[in-house]
Design a protein around this nucleic acid. Structure first.
Length: 553
RNA sequence: GCGCUCGUAGCUCAGUGGAUAGAGCAGCGGACUUCUAAUCCGCAGGUCGUAGGUUCGAAUCCUACCGAGCGCACCA
């Protein structure tokens, strides 16, 4: 990447100045290169002269002058300019820039890098309880996880995407009881749904669906019972299939679906308790088994096995992470959790540490919650409450693309509000169409070129000279840096922002430059090559966001 | 009470140590006999929650306070 190149140029220059005695000897700090938005500040700039002030004991202007005179010439840089307090501004060489079109077009995987070095990485996300349909909050997690997975694949991580299914425990029991009651009601037996049961109408639909599958409609009803194992299992598998379909509807597909019950079958919980015990982190207190996380600086201890001997969600989760990091040997794992799980982060990491696994292999990305509103009224997202609005209901209104783009466009740290009343209006204004339109426009020109029998060529790229053309190329060559940034910061919200900037650079170019001009064939061929490069990067960015790149609109 | 996140233009948000704080939407004014006007160009709009501190330099780092969301279970 260009930043690295420029950084190296400066580094060499400083060390050359040191050898020549112009600078005193010191360890050269990391040289950060900034991209500038303002045209007068160069394409790239460095503040190194200001940073070296205390080390060199000269004023920044002098330091910058020395650095500039010691920089070796290169084909990338056209001009280096010293600016007021001590900035060094770099201007890219035009013919080098135009040649980048060829670089983009001749690579099958532009923007890829090898920071992942083929390491095995697991991204776990959504992992919603299978006791109801996926809701809008899950949609945000799904969008973030899916995009991040795509970006990290471009960084050469061996990525698996996993959905963890909590298919045991209290909530499942309540789900089973609710389903049993609804099913019984359909068969003329009045059983009330449990106190904390699932009140949503979807449970009635589920019972109906199951009833219609069987000729003997009372097959699951037993005397003196409040649930039936087979019925619960059947209900769960239908719910899980629904979740799969709904997520697929917004373009999210997992490589693995991991069942919590597998951990119990494999006795992984017993294994981690044994490890914790060996390492002296277990205490029996008030008839329950505790993990002493306070020994590792956590605020309080946590229960692993309840008084009745059943494992808590927490102990299952330790086992799950033990399975990921130790049994399945992922080098690194990323969990994408809603901010309501924030309190869980510290104790999980402590537990992993207590087992003897490096907790830095776990990265937990929290996203702030979504408030669903209808006008001024807040709509609850709880599956147990009566009113449930599924993700599917919303994206059939807004469209998959508008939804994915919207979810990704804000930083994960930012809380979101989603107003159902404004949803349609908002989607019309959704910038996703602005970006997609750019892609469709490119396709239209390329199609016209085929009709006019003009093909792109890299022979005369030097005819690319216009301000709007060069600005477009500058946006294009930022793409590899974008990939690195998103991967490093685990911040996929940069993708939509970049896509808007790129689309803008294209639209600006489009209004200023006529691509197909039979009188000027050389220029047309070069501009077609530019369009092809732009199409590659734009389509790639849209793919990473998880939206379509339409041929026409 | 303690912990995490947030507070930036009328609205929705980028920007997390640098130069004149940027986009989109909304507002105002322009641009289609020319490859898609779902577009482009221009104008207007901000004591970056408040008060201190660190620094040559702070929206960005530190402290306190104010306001919002979330969390502090033998629920998941």
């Amino acid at each position: 990447m260009i930043e690295e190149e420029i950084s190296k140029l400066i580094y060499k220059s400083v060390s050359r100045a040191q050898t020549a005695g112009e600078f005193t000897i010191f360890e050269i700090p990391k040289i950060k290169i900034d991209t500038s938005q303002i045209s007068g500040h160069g394409d790239y700039s460095s503040n190194i002269a200001m940073q070296l002030k205390s080390l060199v004991n000269k004023n920044p202007i002098e330091i910058a002058e020395t650095i500039i005179t010691n920089i070796t010439t290169t084909t990338i840089i056209d001009e280096i300019v010293l600016a007021k307090p001590g900035f060094i501004n770099f201007y890219l060489n035009k013919s080098w820039l135009s040649q980048q079109i060829k670089t983009i077009n001749s690579s099958s995987s532009y923007g890829n890098n090898n920071t992942g070095n083929n390491n095995k990485m697991l991204i776990e996300y959504v992992s919603a309880n299978p006791t109801g349909p996926v809701h809008i909050g899950n949609g945000r997690g799904a969008s973030i996880g899916s995009s991040l997975a795509k970006v990290l694949r471009k960084c050469n991580f061996m990525i698996e995407e996993e959905f963890y299914i909590n298919d045991t425990g209290n909530q499942i029991s309540l789900f089973g009881q609710t389903l049993y009651a609804r099913y019984s009601q359909l068969n003329g037996k009045e059983i009330k749904i449990p106190e904390n049961g699932y009140r949503g109408a979807y449970m009635i639909d589920l019972a109906k669906l199951i009833k219609h599958k069987y000729k003997d409609s009372s097959i699951f009803i037993e005397e003196n019972n409040n649930q039936n194992q087979e019925l619960t299992a059947l209900g769960l598998s239908i719910m899980i299939d629904d979740m799969k379909n709904e997520l697929k509807g917004i373009g999210v597909e997992f490589t693995n679906w991991f069942y919590e019950s597998d951990l119990h079958k494999r006795k992984t919980i017993a294994a981690i308790i044994k490890k914790l015990s060996t390492n002296n982190f277990i205490e029996k207190k008030e008839n329950a088994l505790w993990f002493q996380s306070s020994k590792l600086g956590d605020s309080k201890d946590n229960v692993l096995l309840r008084t009745d001997g059943t494992p808590t969600y927490f102990s299952a989760d330790i086992a799950y992470h033990y399975n990921k990091l130790f049994e399945r040997k992922f080098d690194k794992i990323i969990n994408i959790w809603g901010a309501d799980h924030q309190g869980h982060v510290s104790r999980l990491k402590k537990a992993i540490e207590a087992i003897g696994i490096d907790q830095n292999r776990i990265e937990i990305l929290l996203y702030q919650l979504i408030t669903l509103k209808r006008g001024e009224k807040i709509v609850p997202l709880s599956k147990r409450a009566g009113e449930i609005i599924s993700l599917k209901e919303i994206f059939t209104e807004t469209g998959k693309d508008a939804m994915r783009f919207f979810f990704l466009s804000q930083s994960a740290n930012q809380a979101m509000e989603f107003d159902l009343e404004l949803a349609k209006k908002q989607t019309k204004d959704n910038p996703v169409y602005y970006v997609q339109y750019a892609h469709a426009r490119i396709c239209a020109v390329l199609k016209k070129a085929t009709e006019e029998k003009i093909t792109s060529s890299h022979e005369n790229l030097s005819t690319i000279q216009e301000e709007s053309e060069l600005a477009l190329i500058k946006k294009l060559i930022y793409f590899p840096q974008l990939i690195t940034k998103v991967a490093e910061e685990l911040a996929p919200h940069h993708l939509p922002h970049y896509s808007i900037e790129l689309a803008h650079a294209f639209h600006h170019f489009y209004t200023n430059c006529k691509v197909i001009d039979i009188k000027n064939k050389k220029l047309s061929e070069a501009r077609l090559a530019l369009l092809e490069a732009c199409k590659i990067v734009l389509a790639s960015t849209l793919d990473l966001i998880g939206v379509e790149a339409p041929e026409k609109m």
